[in-house]
Design a protein around this nucleic acid. Sequence first.
DNA 1: GAGTTGACATGCAATCCGTATGTCAGTTAT
DNA 2: ATAACTGACATACGGATTGCATGTCAACTC
Lengths: 205, 205
Amino acid sequence: MTPRRRIETMEKNRAKLIAAARRAFAEKGFSTASMDELTADAGLTRGALYHNFGDKKGLLAAVVAQVDEEMALRAQELAATAPNDWESLLAEGSAYIEMALDPEIRRIVLLDGPAFLGDPSQWPSQNACLETTKQTVGRLIANGIMKPVDDEAAARLLNGAALNAALWVAASDDPGTVLPRAIEAFRIMAAGFLAKEQPRCNAPV
Amino acid sequence: MTPRRRIETMEKNRAKLIAAARRAFAEKGFSTASMDELTADAGLTRGALYHNFGDKKGLLAAVVAQVDEEMALRAQELAATAPNDWESLLAEGSAYIEMALDPEIRRIVLLDGPAFLGDPSQWPSQNACLETTKQTVGRLIANGIMKPVDDEAAARLLNGAALNAALWVAASDDPGTVLPRAIEAFRIMAAGFLAKEQPRCNAPV
DNA sequence: GAGTTGACATGCAATCCGTATGTCAGTTAT
DNA sequence: ATAACTGACATACGGATTGCATGTCAACTC
C-alpha cells in the first residue's frame, strides 16, 4: 500500500532531531545540552538518536552541516547583488561578519564546531562557506583583479578575519556602533589583495 | 621557624595542577579530560583543585592565561628583531601563525578556550596577545604608516586571520609547504592597511 | 499471510562533576 | 611550649549524563 512510508518517517525524524538539536545547542551549548531533553523535545528518545547519528558528535556534525549550508547560500545571495566581482568578495566577507552576530551561528558553527569536530577544513561537511569564497578568489585572480596568491590561503585569511572580527563585535558592549567599524577595517585590509592601486576614495560605509 | 611554608606549598600545588592540566587538556581536550586523572597525575586530588580554582572552567582559565602570556611574550620577542614597526607587525602575525602549529596552543587557546570561556575579548585574562598587536597598530597609525582605521578592529582582523590560517595550516597534509604560502598571503593582505601614496584621499602628516 | 528486517524504545553500567563533610599540618595566641 | 584555630586538602556521596545491549513492534518482502 504505502511502500515508502518507512524512509519518509525516518527522514522526518532525522529532521526533527536536527531541529531540536539546533535549538538545544544554540541555547545550552553542545557540552551542556542533554540528549534526553533534546530527544524528548523532538518527541523521541535517545534510541532514535544513536541509530541515526551514531554519536552525540555525529548529531553536532549534522547540525553544523545544515547551518553551514544555509550560511553559504545567504553569502552567495548577498554577493550576487554586488556590481562587480571585487565588491562581491567584500560583500561575502561583510555577510559573514553579520551572520556571525546570530547567536545560533556563533555558538554552533564558530565555537562548539571547531572545539568538538576539530578544524573546519577537515569536517565531514567540507564547509561550504569557505568553498564559495575560494571560488570567488580564484575568479578574481584569473581576471587579474587580485594579486596571484594562493587562493585557499587567501580565502582562509579573509574568512578567518571576518569570523573572528564578528566574534569580537558580538561580544562588545555596543555591537551597533562596532559593526560598521569592523566592516570598514575589513574592506581596507582586504584591499591588500588588489593587484593594482585603484585611485578611488572609498567612502566609509 | 618556617612561617612561609604554607603559601609556598600552595603555590607549588597550583603550579603542579596547572602543569598537569596543560598536558591533559592538550592531549585529551578540555571536555574529555578527567579531573580525577588530572589531579592524580599531579599527586593531588579534586579537593585541591576545587579549593584553588573553584571550578573546572576556572582551571581552564588559569591554564589559558598562562599559555596566552607565553604567546604574547614570544610574539614580542620576534617582533623586536624586525627592522621597523611595519615589519614588526608582520612578524607578530607570522609568529601567531607559527605558534598555532603547536598542538597545545591550538587546542587549549584556539579551540577549547573560546568554546568554554566565551569570546577571548571578555576573558578574565584579558588576552595579552591581542593587546600587544593593538599597541603596535596604534603606533603605526600615529606615525602615518598605517591608514587611520579603528586600532582594535585592525588588531582583531589581523590576529583572527593569522590564527585561523594557522588552524588550516596545522590541519593540512603537508604543513611544511603550506605554512610559507599562508605567511606570504598574510603579508600581502596586511599591506592593505598601509597608508602608502594616496594623496587624493587623505593626507596624514 | 507469515517471516524478516530494521527503526526505535528501554534498562543497565560506567563515568564524571560538584559539594558536603572530615582531617591534619601549619600558624597564632597565651 | 602548649593549646586553640585556621585553612589547605582528602574522601564520600548524590545527581546527571553518555553509550551500549537488549527488547519490541511496525513496515516491507515473498
